[in-house]
Design a protein around this nucleic acid. Structure first.
Length: 521
RNA sequence: UCCGGCGUAGCUCAAUGGUAGAGCGGGUGGCUGUUAACCACUAGGUUGUAGGUUCGAGUCCUACCGCCGGAGCCA
């Protein structure tokens, strides 16, 4: 990946007069603590600056961190170069590393030479707040902000943890096709693609292919993008997202639930162990994450429905509603007071600070108001939830708020689930499936099941759903040549990242989100 | 597809139906320790588009466009 100091091309330092002064080692900002007292070279971009008459503070970022670099007017050439720098200009600089409590991060560089690489045009993203539309339109630049780089690092760490988890347990990575004929499930949610005159679709799961690989290798997983053409416009949806799916031969539902539980614990552990600084940047409350430990509560769909109907739950929901209404009133009072302060404020910076507070406060109030308006309806719907319907987002949220860790819900009604799920031998109305609902309202992050391994039963399901058996002959073959109990699940990478990072919206979890009505950049 | 909200300077937002403003960002000048620095000056607008009501519309009405949130559907 990144080019560390040792492999930086030396030839670049031999051009230009300023560059000649830079004979020192190139280091990354996150390694500065190891170079106190040494003369080093940084290469990066100007994140911000503050100018005094005879001193300039450059805030430089290099992808590993931020460093304050102090340029004194005594170093004439460096000072002259530094005055020309605009926000996000690329540069190299060298100087002495020293510890200083006044510097953000505790270390700074006393600059001896500055070499602008390119002077940036007026940069559209300032260090002040921006609206989401503006930021999304500048996603290619927005990625440079500390918050976004923190999210991208956590995403990377979690993806590594996902692959490590399966690799260490003897799973083999199988790449499944992205161009697929026909539909595994309803065709309305697929993106059609012209394939030499035929209509094919972008894959929405690798599962069917994975099942055949599981019969070859025992334990397999796939990891890749999936595509859903659903016209969803919510904070939990993307049209293109990444999913990791294990599939295991000779596995039954309890094995899958155990694996899912262990898997999620491993992911949270990786983030807590290796991404403390990033989580802090995001102001993620760590306490709910630290509680994520096995065993997770496991309930059946029928138990979940009973719970939705229970008086105890409804008393609890009403109490929460009352508490939140009081919270709203408190915020409104706070808003009024802040508005008065704002009206009285004379200094520009005071006004600016108060405006920021007001903005956040108004947003929070708007959000809670909408939530409070919807909630009585949701509570009512929960009370009247009919056995046989699929659990919706609201029901999931209500149920997951009962627990301080992910909840595993199993045995959903057969009619709302896919044809390949194996019915429960003890109650054929339900299937041997599992969903894992993340805490804190983040919704379903895992869905999976034990698969129907009997050829006749599977064919009957294909007929019942009025699907075309011809397109599934190869899939039925798996049940004709040494069929075994097997199953697997899929975990949505972005929803998991959103949960662990504590993000309001899934669009920040992926570098270039694809949403309904947004395809660029 | 349905419901709700918003659209004013490059950005974030103000503006009882009555002279379109502030902060940030840009430019110029000042300041040797700043912490999203500060101080002074300065440029910057067909108020999303098209109609309508009115003596007068950023503000009210209608349609359209765009964005945001939610429902449905889902990971």
């Amino acid at each position: 990946m990144g080019c560390r100091g040792a492999c930086a091309p030396r030839t670049q330092y031999r051009t230009g007069t300023v560059a000649q002064a830079m004979m020192t080692d190139r280091v990354q900002i996150n390694q500065l603590a190891d170079h106190v007292g040494a003369e080093v070279t940084l290469a990066g971009w100007l994140f911000g600056q503050r100018k005094g008459g005879k001193v300039i503070f450059l805030l430089v970022r290099d992808g590993t961190g931020l460093c304050q670099c102090v340029v004194s007017a005594d170093t004439e050439s460096a000072f002259a170069n530094a005055t020309t720098l605009t926000q996000e200009s690329s540069l190299r600089l060298s100087g002495l590393v020293r510890q200083d409590d006044r510097a953000p991060g505790g270390y700074e560089i006393a600059v001896t030479a500055v070499e602008p690489v390119q002077l940036a045009d007026e940069y559209p993203i300032t260090r002040k707040p921006h609206g989401i539309d503006f930021l999304m339109n500048h996603r290619h630049l927005w990625l440079r902000s500390p918050r976004q780089t923190a999210i991208l690092r956590i995403r990377h760490r979690l993806i590594r943890a996902m692959r490590d988890f399966f690799d260490q347990r003897g799973f083999t990575l199988i790449d499944t096709p992205i161009l697929t004929p026909g539909a595994a499930e309803g065709a309305g949610t697929l993106f059609p693609v012209d394939y030499f005159g035929d209509e094919v679709y972008l894959a929405q799961t690798g599962q069917l292919y994975l099942e055949s690989a599981a019969m070859a290798l025992g334990k397999v997983y796939c990891f890749g993008p999936t595509f859903r053409a659903e016209k969803s416009k919510t904070r939990r949806h993307l049209t293109e997202f990444w999913m990791i799916e294990p599939e295991i031969a000779f596995a039954e539902l309890p094995d899958l639930a155990n694996l899912a539980e262990e898997f999620i614990c491993a992911l949270v552990h990786a983030a807590l162990t290796d991404c403390r600084a990033e989580l802090e940047t995001l102001e993620r409350d760590l306490e709910p994450l630290q509680r994520i430990q096995a065993p997770f509560p496991r309930i059946t769909y029928s138990e979940a429905v009973e719970r939705l109907h229970s008086d105890a739950l409804h008393e609890q929901l009403e109490a929460a509603l009352t508490a939140d209404r009081e919270r709203l009133n408190a915020w409104r009072a706070e808003l009024e007071q802040t508005e008065a302060e704002r009206a009285a404020a004379r200094k520009g910076w005071q006004q600016e600070r108060l405006d920021r507070t007001l903005h956040q406060l108004r947003e929070r109030i708007r959000e809670l108001e909408a939530d409070l308006q919807n909630r009585p309806l949701h509570i009512e719907q929960a009370k009247q939830f009919a056995w046989g319907k699929d659990l919706g987002g609201d029901e999931e949220t209500i149920l997951s708020r009962q627990y301080d860790r992910p909840v595993i819900i199993t045995h959903y009604p057969r009619d709302v689930k896919a044809f390949y799920m194996k019915p429960d031998p003890n109650d054929p109305r339900v299937v041997l499936n599992l969903d894992v609902i993340a805490p804190e309202g983040y919704g379903e992050i895992i869905g999976g099941s034990q698969r129907e391994e009997d050829a006749d039963a599977l064919l009957a399901r294909i007929d019942a759903e009025e699907m075309t058996p011809d397109s599934y002959q190869w899939y039925l073959d798996l049940r004709r040549y040494g069929s075994v109990p097997h199953g697997g699940f899929g975990l949505g990478v972005e929803r998991t990242v959103a949960w662990i990072c504590g993000l309001r919206h899934i669009r920040e979890t992926i570098p270039f989100p694809r949403l309904m009505g947004r395809l660029t950049p």
